[in-house]
Design a protein around this nucleic acid. Sequence first.
RNA 1: GGAAAGGUGGCUGAGUGGUCGAAAGCGCCGGACUCGAAAUCCGGUGUACGGUUCUCCGUACCGUGGGUUCGAAUCCCACCCUUUCCGCCA
Length: 451
Amino acid sequence: MLDIQLLRNDLEGVTSRLAARPFQLDGAEFQALEQERKLVQTRTQELQSARNNMAKRIGQAKSKGEDVTALMSEAGEANSELQSVEAKLQQIQAKLQDFLLVIPNLPHATVPPGRSADDNVEVRRHGTPRQFDFQVKDHVDLGEGLGMLDFATATKISGSRFSLMTGGLARLHRALAQFMLDVHTREHGYTEVYTPYLVNAASMRGTGQLPKFEEDLFRVPFGLEEPTQIEVEEVVREGVTSIAPPRQKYFYLIPTAEVPVTNIVRDEIVPLELLPLKFVCHTPCFRSEAGSYGKDTRGMIRQHQFDKVELVQIIAPEKSYGGLEQLTGHAETILQRLELPYRVVALCAGDMGFSSAKTYDIEVWLPGQSAFREISSCSNFEAFQARRMQARFRNEKGKPELVHTLNGSALAVGRTLVAVLENYQNADGSVSVPAALQAYMGGLERIARSG
RNA sequence: GGAAAGGUGGCUGAGUGGUCGAAAGCGCCGGACUCGAAAUCCGGUGUACGGUUCUCCGUACCGUGGGUUCGAAUCCCACCCUUUCCGCCA
């Protein structure tokens, strides 16, 4: 969420910066809402002030034993306008809130312009793709050839976009996650956390998935919300005999550990000396992939369920851009240790996510596709998520101030597995185990078809 | 799922209809005392929003949302959470 003050003070500037995404800000609607808000709020507060004074006078008069019937009827009359104007104010503020909640973050000054992934800017490259003297296979052929990757059975159990791994491959998958966690906790100073995988709507709103991207999420019905008194009265007034049904409440499956981990600080004021908070978290991630029909249908690149090791930092504003560079470096370390070639790209304004002010993607080389594919996305959200979450710290002056939030995958485990399979494949269809992982595989150097 | 108790400021905790944004204590900040420190004493110490504009003024906030009332931390209703006991369960 953007700072409403910024929209009040520099509507034109905000509009033009958002146009880079591109996002069309309805400035006229904002100004109309603001004008009405100001009018109604001023009037409301005036009337509230009058009411408070009157109540005080009645109290004082009563304590002196004076007659207060005249005062009380006067006070009663003034109340009807207050009631309607209070309701109106609530309505306008809800409208303003809804307006603000769907505006994306402002791109940082260093974000390259552009509309699509084609306009992203390569920042650096690491490693050289290996030359193969045989026909390379992609991870699907390799995994199925090993007898350890079975999409048909996964489809039977669940449906498309799920995978089933067995034996050495399942172990390799586990080894990757363990390895990543160990590097980040032992070498990069992150605290490991275990979180809920089902979260409430407030958490999803905090990190920006709601209200705009509900269709990307899986949700599970749980519990009912009783209708408010107002709703019940509306039903009665409209002469409907049945009472309004209770609203269904939902849990949402996390699409990334970013959601539960970042929300740790929702509605909190973090002491300055604890910053930056650095968390690493391994979770499954669940995504509906609505709107990606026909994209990456083969293999385990795009799944409804995948594992990811996520880095999250809660950091002071003036340190957040330095923190983003560091965090991206932490993610790169994993690829370096696994000796996988990759490049880092700065996303252009049009390719960035809704909540991000700046994003680096890390793309790993996949011989099966002869292409770099995204394996990590590292972002600085500045105060965008913090404002939604009311996540603050106490600054040097002792005043609460919004934190900045960072996160990045380090890495997506499924895609890392794909990269290991394809980059470490041998002519006979076996796969060598990267040196960094052998300790996690009981010293195993090579995964081959058994029997 | 059943029963009971509870949810007040950074913390402890008082407040059951009227100058209550809220006593008191602790903590923290400033000052006095001191060579310095401790102890003691004095003063200050929540958040958000709005108006004004650098100085104030106003409004809201005592788990959340409603209601009653001229007036609600206090009364009523619903919900959420915490603790304890019972039941069920990995």
